[in-house]
Nucleic acid binder design. Sequence first.
DNA 1: TCTTGAGTCTGTAGTTCCTACAGGGTTTAC
DNA 2: GTAAACCCTGTAGGAACTACAGACTCAAGA
Lengths: 147, 147
Amino acid sequence: MNSHKSDFTIGTLSKYSSVNIETIRYYEKVEIMPSPPRSEGGYRLYNEIHLRRLSFVRRSRELGFSLEEIRGLLTLVDDKSYTWAQVESLTREHLETTRKKIIDLQKLEVVLDDMASKCDGGHVPDCPVIDTLFGETLFVRSLGAFS
Amino acid sequence: MNSHKSDFTIGTLSKYSSVNIETIRYYEKVEIMPSPPRSEGGYRLYNEIHLRRLSFVRRSRELGFSLEEIRGLLTLVDDKSYTWAQVESLTREHLETTRKKIIDLQKLEVVLDDMASKCDGGHVPDCPVIDTLFGETLFVRSLGAFS
DNA sequence: TCTTGAGTCTGTAGTTCCTACAGGGTTTAC
DNA sequence: GTAAACCCTGTAGGAACTACAGACTCAAGA
């Protein structure tokens, strides 16, 4: 029960994970994060394992995974009761989703990069791309890449 | 006002875009999608431009962009009043975000791919990875890649 | 033409995933 | 030992959907 020198409170965890305090408590409530031990006064005490797990959750959220999907990924870590078949299908499913997302993002990257470079160093009046781009070109090109 | 042969109702748009009907109407309300023309009886009538725009929105949402960010991207398409400096900074900002997301997803892909292949063809008892993986290995490795 | 059933309309209420207080207790640094 | 900074448990709000309810529209067949 006495704290290790590596334990830290929720504010510190929040700072290093870039997840705000209320969200951390919310994740505890919905069981994405475990209930950590408490100090005598009732403060939550975290360690680096918590920090890594929370960082993983944050990044996964930014990448568009739902809490439910993240829960699934984390269950692969937490739960030893899965059968191999379940593990494989879950893993391959996430792998599939991940690959599709990469492809979509790369398409978007190409469009944005091209757009930024086309006007490189130009001023507004010198940049003829601006008209066509805003008229229809970007729309057709970028959305075309996504269809 | 009379409909083109290429016009279609919200159900069709929903089907082809994989965005459900209520969400489409919600996007109209919050001005992510324009108010389309209506049939005499009041049905919304869409065309392929709407379909492309909506598909772009859906994919961007799946990639973790907020409606506000998507609104920004779409404004590059819709609005001709931006200055070049604004366009460049907006575009580069999104490009930056996009590249970071790609990197994170590729890290996750490596972990998942490795995990799936390690047990390839194995049954539960034959697969020693299952214990270590579920004990700590996946956690440390995957979350380590994300930290 | 009339009917029937699938599709659509508006509006409101619920869900998920946070986010922001309020009112109070705890820690730490001087 | 006391102020400032921190944390606690609620509860209420916002963003982005999602799911009805009750009414209207439309296309196709008897």
